[in-house]
């Protein structure tokens, strides 16, 4: 296979000007001809191996694109859905009931997840104040789920979550993510929403799913504008 000089530079992870100089100095088995270069991939690979240089062909453009940016709030929330009227007198039972109500998880996962949430809760409370909690397991659920999920759970009665401001929690966003990166991404966006008092007041009205998602979509738009600047 023939390579261009740019591809050679990428394969060896050096600047093009270095490859150019190496050719001139005769350090690399590439010859200059009247109108270009003579490059042979197998020769080059052999050479790189002999000199113990890293050599891997550059990934095609499509491969590079596959690494999509982490999910945004809206799709994650849609996946998790809204759960109303979650019963429970304390945080453990509330969490237990919420996890049990997440319909698309199999039973053994639910169990593991509940343990995970509880474990995290024992470290410090995930009650972030204003009556909102964002329970999440400490380690990402890499093997169990492929996409991030946020289950929005409105509690029947506010429960004490040992939150920072001591207020009882009336809504929980159970955040499950496959990677730390997407976890942090979603957490940062979610906490941005909660920082707005209007949104918390809106949550207190226990909105239905359509109005809730449209509100979230509004936030997403604002994020998008922020990203662009």
């Amino acid at each position: 296979m023939k390579l261009t000089i740019n591809e050679v530079a990428q394969s060896l992870r050096v600047p093009v000007s270095t490859v150019d100089r190496w050719i001139r100095q005769g350090r690399i088995p590439i010859q200059r001809t009247d109108n270009g270069y003579l490059v042979d991939e197998s020769t080059l690979e052999k050479w790189a191996k002999m000199y113990k240089l890293p050599f891997s062909l550059p990934k095609k453009a499509s491969d590079a694109k596959r690494q999509t940016p982490p999910d945004n709030l809206l799709p994650a929330m849609k996946r998790g859905g809204l759960l109303y009227n979650i019963k429970g007198d304390d945080r453990e039972t509330a969490l237990k009931n919420a996890v049990d109500n997440i319909h698309f998880l199999s039973d053994n996962i639910k169990d593991a997840m509940y343990q995970g949430l509880l474990e995290r809760e024992h470290l410090t409370s995930t009650g972030v104040g204003k009556g909102v909690a964002i329970p999440h397991p400490r380690t990402p659920l890499k093997d169990l789920i492929s996409n991030a999920i946020i289950a929005t759970c409105f509690l029947a009665v506010p429960v004490d979550f040992h939150a920072i401001d001591g207020r009882p929690v009336f809504v929980m966003f159970i955040l499950l993510s496959p990677s730390t990166k997407s976890h942090l991404h979603l957490l940062s966006r979610l906490s941005f929403c909660i920082r707005e008092n209007a949104f918390v007041d809106f949550l207190k009205t226990t909105p239905d799913s359509t109005t809730f998602f449209s509100k979230i979509a509004d936030f997403e738009n604002r994020f998008a504008i922020g990203d662009r600047n």
Binding site: L12, W22, I28, Y51, K52, L53
Partner: peptide
């Protein structure tokens, strides 16, 4: 490092 490897190998 890369330069050294390229210059000084066998």
């Amino acid at each position: 490092r890369k330069e050294l490897m390229v210059q000084c190998h066998l």
